[in-house]
Design a protein around this nucleic acid. Structure first.
Length: 428
DNA sequence: ATCACGGTTTGCA
DNA sequence: CTAACGTGCAAACCGTGAT
Protein backbone atom coordinates (compact mmCIF):
# COMPACT_ATOMS: atom_id res chain seq x y z
CA UNK A 1 0.00 0.00 0.00
CA UNK A 2 1.18 3.50 -0.81
CA UNK A 3 2.18 5.67 2.09
CA UNK A 4 0.64 9.10 2.51
CA UNK A 5 3.37 11.60 3.25
CA UNK A 6 2.31 15.22 3.62
CA UNK A 7 4.54 18.24 3.16
CA UNK A 8 3.24 21.35 4.89
CA UNK A 9 4.95 24.50 3.60
CA UNK A 10 4.20 28.08 4.68
CA UNK A 11 3.53 30.51 1.85
CA UNK A 12 6.17 33.25 1.46
CA UNK A 13 6.98 32.48 5.09
CA UNK A 14 9.03 35.51 6.21
CA UNK A 15 6.72 37.97 4.45
CA UNK A 16 3.67 36.26 5.97
CA UNK A 17 5.23 36.52 9.47
CA UNK A 18 5.73 40.27 8.99
CA UNK A 19 2.13 40.62 7.80
CA UNK A 20 0.68 38.90 10.85
CA UNK A 21 1.88 41.79 13.04
CA UNK A 22 1.74 44.63 10.54
CA UNK A 23 -1.54 44.55 8.59
CA UNK A 24 -0.43 47.56 6.53
CA UNK A 25 1.72 45.12 4.57
CA UNK A 26 -1.30 43.20 3.29
CA UNK A 27 -2.00 43.33 -0.46
CA UNK A 28 1.23 45.26 -1.02
CA UNK A 29 4.55 44.25 -2.56
CA UNK A 30 6.84 43.19 0.31
CA UNK A 31 10.35 41.74 0.19
CA UNK A 32 12.35 40.33 3.10
CA UNK A 33 16.12 40.57 2.73
CA UNK A 34 18.72 38.04 3.85
CA UNK A 35 21.23 38.77 6.62
CA UNK A 36 23.24 41.96 6.14
CA UNK A 37 20.37 43.23 3.96
CA UNK A 38 22.00 41.34 1.08
CA UNK A 39 19.53 39.50 -1.15
CA UNK A 40 15.78 38.94 -1.52
CA UNK A 41 14.88 35.75 0.35
CA UNK A 42 11.10 36.10 0.61
CA UNK A 43 8.69 37.91 -1.68
CA UNK A 44 4.96 38.56 -1.51
CA UNK A 45 2.98 37.61 -4.62
CA UNK A 46 2.78 41.32 -5.48
CA UNK A 47 6.58 41.63 -5.34
CA UNK A 48 7.02 38.52 -7.50
CA UNK A 49 4.64 40.05 -10.05
CA UNK A 50 6.80 43.18 -10.19
CA UNK A 51 9.75 41.00 -11.15
CA UNK A 52 11.84 40.74 -7.97
CA UNK A 53 13.77 37.48 -8.30
CA UNK A 54 14.56 35.01 -5.54
CA UNK A 55 18.10 35.64 -4.32
CA UNK A 56 18.42 38.91 -6.20
CA UNK A 57 20.90 41.33 -4.57
CA UNK A 58 19.15 44.29 -2.94
CA UNK A 59 21.21 46.96 -4.71
CA UNK A 60 20.13 45.50 -8.06
CA UNK A 61 16.40 45.95 -7.49
CA UNK A 62 16.57 49.06 -5.33
CA UNK A 63 15.43 51.35 -8.16
CA UNK A 64 12.55 49.02 -9.00
CA UNK A 65 11.61 49.00 -5.32
CA UNK A 66 11.56 52.78 -5.11
CA UNK A 67 9.52 53.09 -8.30
CA UNK A 68 6.79 50.69 -7.12
CA UNK A 69 6.91 51.40 -3.39
CA UNK A 70 8.01 47.89 -2.55
CA UNK A 71 8.24 47.52 1.22
CA UNK A 72 11.61 46.18 2.36
CA UNK A 73 12.18 44.27 5.61
CA UNK A 74 15.48 43.12 7.12
CA UNK A 75 15.22 39.53 8.29
CA UNK A 76 13.95 39.18 11.84
CA UNK A 77 14.96 35.65 12.79
CA UNK A 78 13.80 35.96 16.39
CA UNK A 79 10.28 36.52 15.03
CA UNK A 80 10.42 33.86 12.30
CA UNK A 81 11.86 31.19 14.61
CA UNK A 82 9.13 31.82 17.17
CA UNK A 83 6.37 31.73 14.54
CA UNK A 84 7.90 28.53 13.17
CA UNK A 85 7.75 26.95 16.64
CA UNK A 86 4.05 27.79 16.83
CA UNK A 87 3.32 26.26 13.42
CA UNK A 88 5.25 23.08 14.24
CA UNK A 89 3.51 22.79 17.58
CA UNK A 90 0.05 22.97 15.96
CA UNK A 91 1.11 20.45 13.31
CA UNK A 92 2.36 18.00 15.92
CA UNK A 93 -1.26 17.45 16.95
CA UNK A 94 -2.20 16.11 13.52
CA UNK A 95 0.26 13.21 13.29
CA UNK A 96 2.45 11.27 15.70
CA UNK A 97 5.13 11.19 13.03
CA UNK A 98 6.51 14.64 12.25
CA UNK A 99 9.77 15.79 10.70
CA UNK A 100 10.59 19.49 10.95
CA UNK A 101 12.47 19.87 7.70
CA UNK A 102 13.21 23.60 7.72
CA UNK A 103 12.02 26.80 9.35
CA UNK A 104 8.86 26.81 7.21
CA UNK A 105 8.43 23.18 6.14
CA UNK A 106 7.27 20.04 7.87
CA UNK A 107 6.66 16.46 6.78
CA UNK A 108 3.79 14.55 8.41
CA UNK A 109 3.11 10.86 7.96
CA UNK A 110 -0.65 10.57 7.37
CA UNK A 111 -0.62 6.94 6.20
CA UNK A 112 -3.88 5.24 7.12
CA UNK A 113 -5.57 8.52 8.11
CA UNK A 114 -9.09 9.22 6.70
CA UNK A 115 -8.79 6.84 3.79
CA UNK A 116 -11.72 8.36 1.93
CA UNK A 117 -10.79 11.97 1.99
CA UNK A 118 -7.33 12.90 3.10
CA UNK A 119 -7.60 16.23 1.29
CA UNK A 120 -10.40 17.29 3.63
CA UNK A 121 -8.20 16.41 6.62
CA UNK A 122 -5.36 18.44 5.10
CA UNK A 123 -7.63 21.42 4.53
CA UNK A 124 -8.56 21.24 8.18
CA UNK A 125 -4.84 21.42 9.02
CA UNK A 126 -4.50 24.53 6.85
CA UNK A 127 -7.45 26.19 8.60
CA UNK A 128 -6.04 25.40 12.05
CA UNK A 129 -2.64 26.88 11.19
CA UNK A 130 -4.32 29.97 9.73
CA UNK A 131 -6.52 30.40 12.77
CA UNK A 132 -3.90 29.73 15.44
CA UNK A 133 -0.89 31.48 13.91
CA UNK A 134 -2.28 33.76 11.19
CA UNK A 135 -0.04 32.13 8.57
CA UNK A 136 -1.17 30.71 5.21
CA UNK A 137 0.14 27.23 4.33
CA UNK A 138 -0.15 24.75 1.46
CA UNK A 139 -0.09 20.97 1.81
CA UNK A 140 1.04 18.38 -0.71
CA UNK A 141 0.44 14.66 -0.21
CA UNK A 142 2.25 11.86 -2.02
CA UNK A 143 3.58 8.33 -1.60
CA UNK A 144 7.10 9.61 -0.87
CA UNK A 145 8.76 12.79 0.32
CA UNK A 146 9.68 13.62 -3.27
CA UNK A 147 6.06 13.26 -4.43
CA UNK A 148 4.81 15.20 -1.40
CA UNK A 149 7.14 18.03 -2.41
CA UNK A 150 5.84 17.87 -5.97
CA UNK A 151 2.21 17.85 -4.80
CA UNK A 152 2.94 20.86 -2.63
CA UNK A 153 4.34 22.68 -5.65
CA UNK A 154 1.12 21.91 -7.56
CA UNK A 155 -1.02 23.17 -4.68
CA UNK A 156 1.01 26.39 -4.46
CA UNK A 157 0.88 27.21 -8.18
CA UNK A 158 -2.75 26.33 -8.85
CA UNK A 159 -5.34 28.23 -6.85
CA UNK A 160 -8.07 25.76 -7.85
CA UNK A 161 -6.57 23.28 -5.38
CA UNK A 162 -7.40 25.61 -2.48
CA UNK A 163 -4.05 24.93 -0.86
CA UNK A 164 -4.13 21.12 -0.84
CA UNK A 165 -3.03 18.60 -3.47
CA UNK A 166 -3.28 14.87 -2.83
CA UNK A 167 -1.24 13.25 -5.59
CA UNK A 168 -2.18 9.76 -4.32
CA UNK A 169 -5.88 10.41 -4.95
CA UNK A 170 -5.37 11.29 -8.63
CA UNK A 171 -6.02 8.81 -11.43
CA UNK A 172 -2.91 7.84 -13.43
CA UNK A 173 -3.84 10.01 -16.42
CA UNK A 174 -4.19 13.03 -14.18
CA UNK A 175 -0.83 12.32 -12.49
CA UNK A 176 0.86 11.96 -15.87
CA UNK A 177 -0.57 15.26 -17.03
CA UNK A 178 1.26 17.02 -14.19
CA UNK A 179 4.46 14.99 -14.69
CA UNK A 180 4.58 16.20 -18.29
CA UNK A 181 3.77 19.77 -17.43
CA UNK A 182 6.13 20.57 -14.54
CA UNK A 183 9.74 21.48 -15.18
CA UNK A 184 12.24 18.86 -14.16
CA UNK A 185 14.28 21.20 -11.95
CA UNK A 186 11.29 21.62 -9.65
CA UNK A 187 11.90 18.09 -8.39
CA UNK A 188 13.48 17.87 -4.94
CA UNK A 189 17.16 17.06 -5.39
CA UNK A 190 17.47 18.19 -9.01
CA UNK A 191 19.22 21.50 -9.40
CA UNK A 192 21.14 23.53 -11.89
CA UNK A 193 24.03 21.06 -12.16
CA UNK A 194 21.99 17.96 -12.88
CA UNK A 195 19.57 19.62 -15.30
CA UNK A 196 21.88 19.90 -18.36
CA UNK A 197 23.22 16.38 -17.81
CA UNK A 198 19.68 15.01 -17.92
CA UNK A 199 18.76 17.03 -21.01
CA UNK A 200 21.82 15.67 -22.77
CA UNK A 201 20.45 12.14 -22.61
CA UNK A 202 16.96 13.19 -23.66
CA UNK A 203 15.24 13.58 -20.30
CA UNK A 204 13.09 16.67 -20.62
CA UNK A 205 10.18 16.20 -18.24
CA UNK A 206 9.43 14.43 -15.00
CA UNK A 207 7.64 11.60 -16.78
CA UNK A 208 10.82 10.85 -18.78
CA UNK A 209 12.74 10.80 -15.53
CA UNK A 210 10.27 8.54 -13.78
CA UNK A 211 10.48 5.98 -16.61
CA UNK A 212 14.20 6.27 -17.34
CA UNK A 213 16.00 3.17 -18.61
CA UNK A 214 17.62 1.66 -15.48
CA UNK A 215 20.76 0.75 -17.43
CA UNK A 216 21.45 4.35 -18.42
CA UNK A 217 20.84 5.29 -14.84
CA UNK A 218 23.37 2.76 -13.52
CA UNK A 219 25.93 3.91 -16.02
CA UNK A 220 25.77 7.64 -15.67
CA UNK A 221 24.24 8.76 -12.39
CA UNK A 222 24.67 8.71 -8.64
CA UNK A 223 22.78 6.87 -5.98
CA UNK A 224 21.02 10.12 -5.04
CA UNK A 225 19.33 10.41 -8.43
CA UNK A 226 18.35 6.74 -8.29
CA UNK A 227 16.66 7.35 -4.97
CA UNK A 228 14.78 10.31 -6.42
CA UNK A 229 13.57 8.17 -9.32
CA UNK A 230 12.44 5.38 -7.01
CA UNK A 231 10.54 7.97 -5.03
CA UNK A 232 8.80 9.20 -8.19
CA UNK A 233 7.69 5.58 -8.61
CA UNK A 234 6.05 5.49 -5.17
CA UNK A 235 8.96 3.68 -3.51
CA UNK A 236 10.16 5.34 -0.31
CA UNK A 237 13.91 5.97 -0.12
CA UNK A 238 13.93 9.00 2.17
CA UNK A 239 12.34 8.14 5.48
CA UNK A 240 11.02 10.67 7.97
CA UNK A 241 13.71 11.60 10.45
CA UNK A 242 12.95 12.10 14.11
CA UNK A 243 13.30 15.54 15.67
CA UNK A 244 15.98 14.20 18.03
CA UNK A 245 18.62 13.65 15.33
CA UNK A 246 21.74 15.63 16.14
CA UNK A 247 23.77 17.80 13.78
CA UNK A 248 27.04 16.32 12.55
CA UNK A 249 28.37 19.75 11.72
CA UNK A 250 27.61 23.15 13.28
CA UNK A 251 28.35 26.42 11.52
CA UNK A 252 28.23 30.09 12.41
CA UNK A 253 29.29 32.63 9.81
CA UNK A 254 28.37 36.22 8.97
CA UNK A 255 29.17 38.90 6.43
CA UNK A 256 30.25 42.17 8.00
CA UNK A 257 28.27 45.41 7.77
CA UNK A 258 31.50 47.13 6.72
CA UNK A 259 34.80 45.78 5.46
CA UNK A 260 37.30 44.91 8.21
CA UNK A 261 41.03 45.50 8.04
CA UNK A 262 42.15 45.15 11.65
CA UNK A 263 43.19 41.88 13.23
CA UNK A 264 41.47 42.90 16.46
CA UNK A 265 38.04 43.10 14.79
CA UNK A 266 38.51 39.74 13.12
CA UNK A 267 39.43 38.26 16.50
CA UNK A 268 36.25 39.64 18.02
CA UNK A 269 34.05 38.33 15.23
CA UNK A 270 35.58 34.87 15.40
CA UNK A 271 35.15 34.84 19.20
CA UNK A 272 31.48 35.77 18.78
CA UNK A 273 30.81 33.11 16.14
CA UNK A 274 32.60 30.45 18.20
CA UNK A 275 30.39 31.43 21.16
CA UNK A 276 27.21 30.99 19.08
CA UNK A 277 28.40 27.69 17.59
CA UNK A 278 29.34 26.34 21.05
CA UNK A 279 25.88 27.30 22.35
CA UNK A 280 24.29 25.23 19.57
CA UNK A 281 26.67 22.38 20.37
CA UNK A 282 25.68 22.31 24.05
CA UNK A 283 21.98 22.64 23.22
CA UNK A 284 22.20 19.27 21.47
CA UNK A 285 24.32 17.77 24.28
CA UNK A 286 27.43 17.19 22.21
CA UNK A 287 31.16 17.75 22.15
CA UNK A 288 33.43 18.58 19.23
CA UNK A 289 36.87 17.28 18.31
CA UNK A 290 37.63 19.69 15.49
CA UNK A 291 37.18 23.38 14.83
CA UNK A 292 37.55 25.01 11.43
CA UNK A 293 37.74 28.78 10.94
CA UNK A 294 37.88 30.83 7.77
CA UNK A 295 38.16 34.45 6.65
CA UNK A 296 37.71 35.96 3.20
CA UNK A 297 37.50 39.23 1.29
CA UNK A 298 34.56 39.99 -1.00
CA UNK A 299 34.45 37.62 -4.00
CA UNK A 300 32.42 40.24 -5.92
CA UNK A 301 34.71 43.23 -5.63
CA UNK A 302 36.92 43.05 -8.71
CA UNK A 303 38.90 46.16 -7.80
CA UNK A 304 40.43 44.70 -4.65
CA UNK A 305 42.63 41.60 -4.67
CA UNK A 306 40.90 38.49 -3.36
CA UNK A 307 42.14 36.56 -0.37
CA UNK A 308 40.67 33.64 1.50
CA UNK A 309 42.18 31.26 3.96
CA UNK A 310 41.06 28.70 6.48
CA UNK A 311 42.48 26.30 9.01
CA UNK A 312 41.23 23.14 10.65
CA UNK A 313 42.33 22.67 14.23
CA UNK A 314 42.08 19.13 15.64
CA UNK A 315 41.37 19.42 19.34
CA UNK A 316 43.49 17.43 21.81
CA UNK A 317 40.33 16.55 23.75
CA UNK A 318 36.64 16.71 22.86
CA UNK A 319 35.03 19.79 24.36
CA UNK A 320 31.98 22.05 24.48
CA UNK A 321 33.77 24.80 26.40
CA UNK A 322 33.42 28.20 24.73
CA UNK A 323 36.63 29.52 26.30
CA UNK A 324 38.73 26.56 25.15
CA UNK A 325 37.28 26.78 21.65
CA UNK A 326 37.99 30.52 21.45
CA UNK A 327 41.61 29.97 22.51
CA UNK A 328 42.21 27.41 19.77
CA UNK A 329 40.37 29.40 17.12
CA UNK A 330 42.30 32.62 17.83
CA UNK A 331 45.52 30.66 17.64
CA UNK A 332 44.34 29.47 14.21
CA UNK A 333 43.35 32.98 13.15
CA UNK A 334 46.92 34.22 13.71
CA UNK A 335 48.09 31.56 11.26
CA UNK A 336 45.75 32.54 8.43
CA UNK A 337 45.51 36.34 8.85
CA UNK A 338 47.30 38.50 6.28
CA UNK A 339 47.63 42.22 6.77
CA UNK A 340 46.42 44.65 4.10
CA UNK A 341 43.19 42.97 2.98
CA UNK A 342 39.62 44.19 3.40
CA UNK A 343 37.82 41.26 4.98
CA UNK A 344 34.12 40.79 4.23
CA UNK A 345 33.23 37.60 6.04
CA UNK A 346 34.42 35.16 8.71
CA UNK A 347 33.08 31.85 9.91
CA UNK A 348 33.44 28.90 12.23
CA UNK A 349 32.61 25.23 11.63
CA UNK A 350 32.53 22.59 14.35
CA UNK A 351 32.87 19.03 13.08
CA UNK A 352 33.71 15.56 14.41
CA UNK A 353 30.82 16.00 16.79
CA UNK A 354 30.13 13.33 19.40
CA UNK A 355 27.19 12.88 21.74
CA UNK A 356 27.89 13.58 25.41
CA UNK A 357 26.38 10.18 26.20
CA UNK A 358 29.34 8.58 24.50
CA UNK A 359 31.93 10.69 26.31
CA UNK A 360 35.43 9.31 25.86
CA UNK A 361 37.69 11.04 28.38
CA UNK A 362 41.29 11.58 27.47
CA UNK A 363 43.50 9.07 29.29
CA UNK A 364 45.28 11.86 31.19
CA UNK A 365 42.47 14.36 31.54
CA UNK A 366 41.51 15.57 35.01
CA UNK A 367 38.00 14.59 36.04
CA UNK A 368 37.72 17.58 38.36
CA UNK A 369 38.67 20.03 35.61
CA UNK A 370 35.99 18.57 33.35
CA UNK A 371 33.35 18.84 36.05
CA UNK A 372 34.18 22.52 36.58
CA UNK A 373 34.04 23.21 32.85
CA UNK A 374 30.61 21.57 32.56
CA UNK A 375 29.28 23.53 35.53
CA UNK A 376 30.61 26.82 34.18
CA UNK A 377 29.04 26.32 30.74
CA UNK A 378 25.73 25.16 32.22
CA UNK A 379 25.59 28.23 34.47
CA UNK A 380 26.50 30.54 31.58
CA UNK A 381 23.74 29.06 29.43
CA UNK A 382 21.18 29.19 32.23
CA UNK A 383 21.78 32.85 32.98
CA UNK A 384 21.71 33.84 29.32
CA UNK A 385 18.56 31.81 28.63
CA UNK A 386 16.82 33.31 31.63
CA UNK A 387 17.88 36.93 31.27
CA UNK A 388 18.72 37.45 27.59
CA UNK A 389 21.68 36.20 25.61
CA UNK A 390 23.86 39.27 26.05
CA UNK A 391 23.80 39.30 29.86
CA UNK A 392 27.06 37.31 30.11
CA UNK A 393 29.43 37.71 27.18
CA UNK A 394 32.99 36.59 26.62
CA UNK A 395 35.39 39.57 26.75
CA UNK A 396 37.07 38.47 23.51
CA UNK A 397 33.85 39.31 21.63
CA UNK A 398 34.38 43.00 22.42
CA UNK A 399 31.75 45.35 23.79
CA UNK A 400 30.59 46.99 20.58
CA UNK A 401 30.80 45.59 17.06
CA UNK A 402 31.05 48.41 14.51
CA UNK A 403 31.23 45.66 11.84
CA UNK A 404 27.95 44.00 12.78
CA UNK A 405 25.61 43.21 9.93
CA UNK A 406 23.31 45.77 8.37
CA UNK A 407 19.66 45.47 9.37
CA UNK A 408 18.25 48.80 8.30
CA UNK A 409 14.58 47.84 8.17
CA UNK A 410 14.02 45.48 11.04
CA UNK A 411 10.55 45.00 12.50
CA UNK A 412 10.10 44.66 16.29
CA UNK A 413 10.53 41.21 17.87
CA UNK A 414 6.80 41.14 18.58
CA UNK A 415 6.69 37.72 20.23
CA UNK A 416 9.99 37.40 22.08
CA UNK A 417 10.94 40.81 23.51
CA UNK A 418 8.91 43.02 25.89
CA UNK A 419 10.74 46.23 24.98
CA UNK A 420 10.15 45.67 21.28
CA UNK A 421 6.48 45.07 22.00
CA UNK A 422 6.24 48.50 23.65
CA UNK A 423 7.94 50.06 20.61
CA UNK A 424 5.52 48.22 18.32
CA UNK A 425 2.58 49.55 20.31
CA UNK A 426 3.81 53.14 19.88
CA UNK A 427 4.24 52.66 16.13
CA UNK A 428 0.61 51.64 15.77
C1' DA B 1 42.49 -3.29 -5.83
C1' DT B 2 40.57 -1.36 -1.83
C1' DC B 3 40.06 1.44 2.18
C1' DA B 4 40.05 5.47 5.17
C1' DC B 5 40.40 10.08 5.14
C1' DG B 6 39.93 14.91 4.14
C1' DG B 7 38.80 18.50 1.00
C1' DT B 8 35.51 19.91 -2.62
C1' DT B 9 31.15 20.01 -4.93
C1' DT B 10 26.31 19.75 -5.05
C1' DG B 11 21.82 20.57 -3.51
C1' DC B 12 18.36 22.60 -0.72
C1' DA B 13 15.66 26.09 1.92
C1' DC C 1 28.66 60.97 -4.97
C1' DT C 2 29.74 55.62 -4.63
C1' DA C 3 29.20 50.92 -3.42
C1' DA C 4 26.36 47.66 -2.07
C1' DC C 5 25.56 39.75 -3.60
C1' DG C 6 23.25 35.02 2.89
C1' DT C 7 23.62 31.06 5.87
C1' DG C 8 23.66 26.26 7.55
C1' DC C 9 23.33 21.79 6.90
C1' DA C 10 23.99 16.76 4.68
C1' DA C 11 25.93 13.79 1.59
C1' DA C 12 28.08 12.55 -2.66
C1' DC C 13 32.22 12.82 -4.98
C1' DC C 14 37.06 12.67 -5.72
C1' DG C 15 42.03 12.55 -5.01
C1' DT C 16 45.49 10.75 -2.00
C1' DG C 17 48.40 7.74 0.67
C1' DA C 18 48.45 3.33 3.10
C1' DT C 19 47.93 -1.48 2.99
Amino acid sequence: MNRSIALVDCNNFYVSCERVFNPKLKNKPVVVLSNNDGCAVARSEEAKALGVKMGEPWFQFKRLAEKHNIIICSSNYALYADMSDRVMSVLSKFSPNQEIYSIDECFLDLTGFCKDDLATYAKKICRCIQQQTGLPVCIGIGASKTLAKLANYIAKKNLAFQGVCNFNAMVIQEQNKWLHKIKIEKIWGIGKQLLPKLQQIGIYNINDLKNINPRILDLKFSISLKRTIYELNNIVCFKLEGTTTKKKQITCSRSFGLLITSFKSLEQSIALYVTRAAEKLRRQNSYTRSIHIYICTSPFNKKESYYENSITIPLPEQTDNTLTLIQFSLFGLRKIYRNGYKYQKAGVILSKIVSSKKYQPDLFSKKEKRRKSNNLMATLDQINTLMGKKILIIAAEGITQPWKMRQNNMSPRYTTNWNDLIVANQLI
